[in-house]
C-alpha cells in the first residue's frame, strides 16, 4: 500500500534522510546538537539574529533593548527649554480626534480681558483609558503633543493615572533625546509656530508651571 500526496504549492522541502551507518546515529546526532547548545550557552551573549546557538535573552530590569525612535507609548506635552513656553495652543484638535476620548482641555482666558489666550489652562489625559494610538500626536498642528517612550506605568493607585498638565509637560530636549531625527524634521516648523503663539500670549499664561520663576515672562504687549 502506498500513500500519494499531491502538493500544489511549492513550499515543501524534500529532505533526504540518508540511511544511518549504525543504529542510533540520528539520536546521537540530536544529542550532540543539544549538548552543543548547552556549551555555547555559557559563551558570550548573541549579537545578531544570524547566530543560532547561545543565549540571547535580554534580562529586562537590568538590561533593556534600545527602543526605536518611532516607538510610541502614551502622549506627553512639550514646552520650550529656554523660555518655558508650552507648544500647545489648546486648539482642541487632539481632543476631537481622540478615539477613546480621554483628552480633556480647558482653554485659558485672560483674567483682565476675559478673552481666550492660545494656551491650555488644564490639559488632562486619562492614561488608564488611553490606547496609545498616537492620533493626537499625528493631528497636532503645533507639534506640541508627542508620544513618550516611557512604558513602566504600572501602579496600584488608579487615580494617579489621570495625568494633569503638570504631569504631562516635558521639555523639548527630552523629546529630542528620544527621537532626534523626527524632531530635526519638524523643529523649524514647530518653533516658527511657537513664536507666533508667544506673540499672542501675555504674562505667565502659557508658561509651563515647573518653569515659572525660572524664566523671564515675555514683555506684556501694550494694550490695544
Amino acid at each position: 500500500m502506498t500513500v500519494k500526496i499531491e502538493i500544489q504549492r511549492g513550499s515543501a522541502v524534500p529532505l533526504s534522510r540518508r540511511h544511518p551507518k549504525f543504529l542510533g546515529q540520528g539520536m546521537l546526532k540530536g544529542m550532540e546538537v543539544v549538548l552543543d547548545h548547552w556549551f555555547k550557552s555559557f559563551g558570550p551573549k548573541l549579537e545578531n539574529f544570524s547566530q543560532t546557538a547561545g543565549i540571547f535573552t535580554t534580562e529586562y530590569p537590568e538590561e533593556r533593548l534600545k527602543l526605536a525612535e518611532a516607538y510610541r507609548n502614551l502622549p506627553i506635552l512639550l514646552y520650550d527649554d529656554e523660555t518655558g513656553q508650552e507648544l500647545c495652543t489648546s486648539c482642541l484638535q487632539c481632543e476631537k480626534i481622540c478615539p477613546p476620548q480621554v483628552i480633556h482641555i480647558t482653554q485659558t482666558k485672560d483674567p483682565s480681558t476675559g478673552k481666550l489666550v492660545l494656551a491650555a489652562a488644564e490639559f488632562i489625559i486619562e492614561y488608564d483609558a488611553c490606547m496609545g494610538c498616537g492620533l493626537c500626536a499625528e493631528v497636532c498642528p503645533f507639534d506640541s503633543i508627542k508620544m513618550d517612550h516611557h512604558y513602566e506605568l504600572s501602579t496600584a493607585d488608579h487615580a494617579s493615572l489621570t495625568m494633569h498638565k503638570a504631569d504631562l509637560l516635558r521639555p523639548v530636549s527630552y523629546y529630542q533625546s528620544l527621537a532626534p531625527t523626527f524632531w530635526e524634521q519638524t523643529k523649524e516648523n514647530a518653533y516658527k509656530k511657537l513664536q507666533n503663539t508667544v506673540k499672542r500670549r501675555s504674562g505667565l499664561l502659557g508658561i509651563a508651571p515647573s518653569m515659572v520663576g525660572k524664566v523671564q515672562p515675555p514683555e506684556t504687549k501694550p494694550a490695544e
Binding site: T2, K4, I5, E6, I7, Q8, G10, S11
Partner: peptide, 9 residues
C-alpha cells in the same frame, strides 16, 4: 511509507 515521487515545487 510515503512514496518518493511527490511533486515538489
Amino acid at each position: 511509507k510515503l512514496v518518493e515521487d511527490q511533486k515538489f515545487g
